[in-house]
Design a protein around this nucleic acid. Sequence first.
RNA 1: GGCCCGUUGGUCAAGCGGCUAAGACGCUAGCCUCUCACGCUGGAAACAUGGGUUCGAUUCCCGUACGGGUCACCA
Length: 556
Amino acid sequence: MDYQLLADLLFPSVTKTREELEKEYPARSLPEGAKVTRFAPSPTGFVHFGGLFPATVGERLAHQSGGVFYLRIEDTDAKREVPGAAEGLVKTLANYGVNFDEGMTLEGEKGAYGPYKQSLRRDIYHVYAKELVVKGLAYPCFSSEEDLEALKQVNKKEELKNTDWTEAEAQRKAEQDRARAITLEEVKEHLSKGEPFVLRLLSGGDKDKKVRFTDLIKGNLEFPENDEDFVLLKSDGIPTYHFAHAVDDHLMGTTHVIRGEEWLPSLAKHVQLFTFLGFKLPKYMHIAQIMRLDENGNKKKLSKRDMGANLDDYSRMGYCAESVCEYVMTLLNSNYEEWHAKNPELPYTDFPFSIKKMSVSGCLFDFDKLNDVSKNVLSRMTAEHVYDLTLAWAKENDPDFAELLASDAVYATSILSIGRGGKKPRKDFARLSEVKDYMGFFYDELFEIKDALPEQFSKEDVKACITDFTKNYDESLDNTGWFDSVKGVAERQGFCPDVKAYKQSPESYKGHVGDVSSFIRLAITGKLNSPDLYTVMQILGKERSLARLDAFTQSL
RNA sequence: GGCCCGUUGGUCAAGCGGCUAAGACGCUAGCCUCUCACGCUGGAAACAUGGGUUCGAUUCCCGUACGGGUCACCA
């Protein structure tokens, strides 16, 4: 067959040569060892939590080495594209510290290796497609979409387990042989009728032969050669993932391809494609997937519909981006936690990220761990910072609370300052959404008696204690003086001022000083548990504190 | 079903031929002259399994089981 003729027939408008094209994509001049990485999502909606992993790895590797990190939009499947998804994605990712140097960025489209949207690169792919045809390495296939649909049904759908795989394979082979046998005359005929075609790779692969390969994370791998004439260009002239991946990463100078391990089975195709095209194979890193537990207790890949799959969900739940980033880092590099414990003041971007420390197997998403990380992150922040974050969260998710917070920033900040700043800060909440419950009682609008008085105390005793306390309350006392006054109340009301002494002979007292405190605490905060009562009353102020004590005794 | 990947406590994980098999989360006991939140000191809890190789295997090799992924004109 005259391949040149076939190529001209198929791609009459392609006149540019590969050499001409590649002049427009010169090698990058980067320092020694600099990595060029990319994040290449398809704009099908929100950013998947799992997407944060390759994105973070790519960002770290590139920026840590003085390289380039770019965003490429893989919008080759028009059917699944969601308008505006790309813009939202850039914004969300930026929130999580993932910023791009090229492609679509917060400041708009940047970079000299574009366009960075695959749908805009059609002509580029066609140059290589035509070249493959000229070399006899690709051929058109005019099977109608319906034919393929029928074939697909054989091994598709829920009955995957019941499909006869041997038959499906034989059918595939037969189909492939038939398609390969196409003549120039037939091509001309189809073309003259205006029939669309897909371009297939003419794979010379033998699946009894093995390909050896080294993945930077998985290590040495071995798999059968690809023997499938997979599709390079779809009937609309847009490339499939495989072809676009090869052309784009070659032209854009990607040094490290970072993607989920679900791509491992396609690797044979990619190795073959790069070879056929004469491209240098980039380094590959197939990262383990984040898993979830299904209803049977089995691990499953975190899929789009799962709770926690949407990155934006985390903000909504009240996790700040910093917490999520740290959690991701602990999963990505097993020594991150240790490093962070030694350098608590340094941002995670100072951590020497290492490919070697990446896990080979998938891990389960663990909210307990996230919560712990988040509590630590939040506890290290200044009260002002927590205030700002909480206010921002509340504005989106709880406007009424936001209004309260905004009404007096100084007051709110002083509340958030309780137990903050020292070597052992309080860790009361993991999520911004928990702040309201934690500090709500400081606001009369939200204050209510939530807990019940322990049953063993009579109302009269409680009333007597509180009245006694109120009578002698002196706002100018310091913490110790304040507690001494509570002890005084205990003593006068038949409660033991010393807990240990009480435990020696509980029958001699009505209770102990801790019980007296709990009466006051309940009246002041509405809860049996609260931060240091003395501080709480100082912030609340004498007037409001006494009013609450009074209201409480009245209600008994 | 074929192909590929994986398997250390409930979870995340150190380990890379010889150790009482780290640490973190969670759970739990006790302590911290009032609760909570911290903090501190403890505790329970693991090398999937059968064969090799070796003086010696969690570690190396093979099989088995189990789990995961993938088999599109989707990425």
